[in-house]
Structures are given as C-alpha cells and as structure tokens.
C-alpha cells in the first residue's frame, strides 16, 4: 500500500489500497478492505455486490462525498484524500455526475430548473445555463417535457431528467447508484439503453448495482463482497 502511494498513478481513475473503517462503539468495522481499482476513460464499469457488501461506501468515496480511512484515490491525476470541503464540492460539481436510485429531483422545480442546478454551483451565467439544460434534456429525449414538474413525469422520465442533470456540467464520470432500482423492468431497460448510448458517445460510467442483469450492460464488471473487490467478467456468473 505504501509503495503504491509512492508512485501516484497519473491515470484517469485510480484507487490504491482504499480502506474504510467505521468505529462502532469500542470496536472498528471495516467496510472496504484494500480496494484497488483502475478505470480507463470511456469505460462502462459495473460494481456488483449484494447489500451490506460496502457498495454505498464505495459509491460515496468514488463520488467524493466521503474520504477513505487509508489509501489513495486519484481522479484525473488529482489526489482526492487531502482536499477540503470546498475543494471536494468543486470536484463533485466538475468531475462527477450523480444518478440516484430515487432520482432526487427537486419537486418544486420544473425539469429545466432541476437540470440547471449543478450549473448554478458551477457559476455559469443564467442564459448559458438554460441553453445547456435544454440541450441535455433534448439529449435524453425529453424535449417536450422541459417545463414539466417531477410529479407530472413518469418514473423513467424522472430518471432521464436526473441523467440530464448529471450530464449538465460535462463531468469526467457518471456515477449511478442502482439507477433502475425504482423502475419497472421495461423502463429500467430503456434507461440502461440510454446509459449504453451515452457510453458509446464516450462518457465514462460507473454503475453500482446488486442486479446482475443490470450489471451486464457494463463493459466490465467488478464484484464487491464483504468489502473486498475482485475482477470478474460478465460471463462468469
């Protein structure tokens, strides 16, 4: 682990010896053990694991919402571990496009305003924001739902708004956490097809899921079990 950190990977995405320990009373609970992961630009990688395997923690660390107890994480050559709150906020804004299981749209705002949100924090001027937000909504096929509110949209459409929002700042990676978890199978598949299409366009996607059928949409699958990560192709299940 130490010798790894001596030679920081200048790669696109690299994790070395990531370990996350939570104190539980007097004991310590290790959620992630010595995880190494490298991802190349343009990959569509599925992190597959059952609940309790450390998936959420993995997602939080990748998304820069949390920092590892030990280990190094480089995103586009930038070390994440020693950044402060404000720097992390900036990285989340510029580098990560979050897609959540429960969509996480602001119910009081229409689709455009929801997609606009990360651009506000990026400091983009108003007019440019609206153009970009519209462009993204057109990309996910919602050109006729720009002014609809989340409660006027179906689940699949809401997740598309969320994907448009994740795309808005042209992030380095799209980070999806069970993106089909709240959708029926058919809609889920449509969303996954959109992911595949986005990947074809060159977007790097990291998807965290427990569902092997969903994971198979990725070009590469890694498995997470009890905090230990192992490589495994889609076909060896």
């Amino acid at each position: 682990m130490t010798d790894m950190s001596m030679q920081p990977a200048a790669g696109f995405f690299s994790m070395r010896g990531i370990t996350k320990v939570y104190p539980m009373g007097n004991e310590e609970h290790t959620v992630l053990r010595d995880v190494d992961l490298d991802i190349a630009q343009g990959e569509f990688i599925s992190v597959l694991g059952p609940s309790g395997s450390g998936k959420s923690t993995m997602m939080n660390i990748i998304g820069c919402l949390d920092t590892p107890t030990y280990g190094d994480y480089f995103l586009r050559g930038k070390p994440i571990a020693d950044q402060d709150e404000n720097e992390l906020a900036k990285i989340r804004n510029r580098e990560i496009g979050f897609i959540f299981q429960s969509f996480q749209l602001l119910q009081r705002q229409n689709a455009l305003r929801n997609v606009e949100l990360p651009l506000i924090y990026a400091g983009m001027p108003h007019k440019k924001r609206l153009e970009r937000a519209e462009e993204m909504l057109v990309r996910v096929g919602l050109q006729d739902k720009l002014w609809h509110f989340p409660n006027q949209l179906s689940g699949g459409q809401q997740q598309r708004v969320a994907i448009a929002r994740a795309l808005a700042t042209h992030p380095t990676i799209l980070l999806a956490d069970e993106p089909t978890g709240a959708l029926d199978q058919k809609t889920g598949h449509q969303v996954m097809e959109l992911f595949s299409a986005l990947n074809q366009e060159g977007h790097t996607i990291i998807m965290i899921t427990h569902d092997i059928n969903i994971a198979r949409f990725g070009s590469r699958i890694v498995r997470l079990l009890d905090g230990v990560l192992s490589e495994g192709g889609p076909d060896d299940v």
Binding site: L65, N86, K90, R92, R165
Partner: peptide
C-alpha cells in the same frame, strides 16, 4: 435535509 444533501452532491459549497 434531503435537498441540502442533493445540493451538496451537485457541488454546493457549505458556504452557499
């Protein structure tokens, strides 16, 4: 709370 979390995930600094 949820909205605050989302805003932070999307890049809002604590100050904003």
């Amino acid at each position: 709370t949820n909205e605050i979390g989302l805003r932070k995930a999307l890049g809002a600094r604590p100050a904003s």
